[in-house]
Amino acid sequence: MKIRLLPAALLAALAFPLALQATVDDALSFAYEAATPYVQQGFTFREDAWGGDLGVGEQKAVTAQLFKGNNYWFCLGTDTDGATVTVHVYDSKGKLVESQNWQKGRFGGALVNPKQTGTYFAIVEVKKSPEERTHWALVYGYR
């Protein structure tokens, strides 16, 4: 599901962080939080994002057209306390192509420097969660 974060939702997330409802928009604010360091490094993050909900052990593949010459950070977040989510990026032949990856609880990130222009897949997975379904959101930026 493609999602867009409305300014009002963003304001609410900033003003009342403890009163967040479990929605994909909330997960998105955490995805942007994961992206913050890379914005400061000059990455431009798109204003739209992708998200949904997954059970533990379930995966979702987000298909992306990437261009050789750009570097891309994929940043993932969830609003579920105690959840662990990961994102890994593969090329169209299923080969892992990320040059960096990190994971910290509700946040995850993967850096890709495409060797070829073409189709890539960001695989999102909920590794652990106290909830039956865990909302997640993915953003990506390029430089």
Partner: peptide, 29 residues
């Protein structure tokens, strides 16, 4: 993470449609 995965084993419902790049991505290159 696994170095290699079989994308053909991904159920169609688990694959999101392609993300249309924004023009800036191409102009950036």
């Amino acid at each position: 993470a696994p170095q290699q995965i079989d994308l053909s084993k991904f159920p169609a419902a688990a694959v999101q449609d392609v993300v249309v790049p924004v023009p800036s991505e191409i102009f950036n290159v």
